[in-house]
Each structure stands twice: as structure tokens, then as C-alpha cells.
């Protein structure tokens, strides 16, 4: 695996999966949270703050702070620190937007 921040080889026996972050193909280990796969790929910015526009990433790492939210397989604002990726999962920094959906409906 090309991941640069993996710490040791003990996990090498784990199964590798592919997923997409903002349309970019990445590798991760099956069963690990998306935030861990992203960090292993050197990705620290998971989203931008809807209020300040600043970059945000992992903060508490165990589901309390909601900073590592992303859209995962069509569900917006999923906590990536708690959620393992499925093979082929599509993860986006920002929700594709309920507004667009609403307008399609009309």
C-alpha cells in the first residue's frame, strides 16, 4: 500500500479496500474508520466549516466533536472517525446538498 503514515507492518495482513474521497481513489484497510484511512493517505482536511469556511479535520477521534463529518455513500454529515468504509465507498467533503434534491422534486 502506498500510504505514507502507516506506523508498522503488523496490519499488513488486513484486507485492503478502495474508496473515493472527493472523487479521488484511495486505499484503506477493511474495517478501519474512514478518518484513519484518510489520515494514512496524508489527508488531514476532511471538510470546510459551513460557517467560517476554514478547513477542519479529525479532532476528538471518537465521535464526540462531529468535526470529521463527511457525506458517505449519499448520507450527509457522517462521522468518519466512527464509520468504516465499504469497498468502493464514495466520500465527499461537503454534502451534495438537500437543496438540489428538493428542486429536482418539484
Amino acid at each position: 500500500m502506498s500510504n505514507t503514515l502507516r506506523l508498522n507492518s503488523s496490519s499488513n495482513k488486513l484486507e485492503t479496500i478502495e474508496f473515493y474521497f472527493n472523487d479521488k481513489k484511495l486505499n484503506g484497510y477493511k474495517g478501519e474508520p474512514i478518518a484513519a484511512s484518510l489520515l494514512a493517505n496524508g489527508i488531514k482536511t476532511i471538510r470546510t466549516c459551513e460557517i467560517t469556511g476554514e478547513n477542519r479535520g479529525i479532532f476528538c477521534g471518537i465521535g464526540h466533536c462531529y468535526e470529521c463529518r463527511a457525506e458517505v455513500d449519499g448520507i450527509p454529515n457522517v462521522r468518519t472517525c466512527l464509520t468504516p468504509a465499504r469497498q468502493g465507498a464514495k466520500v465527499f467533503s461537503q454534502a451534495s446538498g438537500i437543496k438540489g434534491d428538493m428542486e429536482d422534486e418539484s
Binding site: G74, I75, P76, N77, I98, D101, M102, E105
Partner: peptide, 9 residues
């Protein structure tokens, strides 16, 4: 009333 709100938190 708004079926798409099922995806809202």
C-alpha cells in the same frame, strides 16, 4: 410533508 427530510438530522 417533506419526504426528503428523511435524510436530515
Amino acid at each position: 410533508a417533506f419526504p426528503l427530510l428523511a435524510k436530515a438530522r
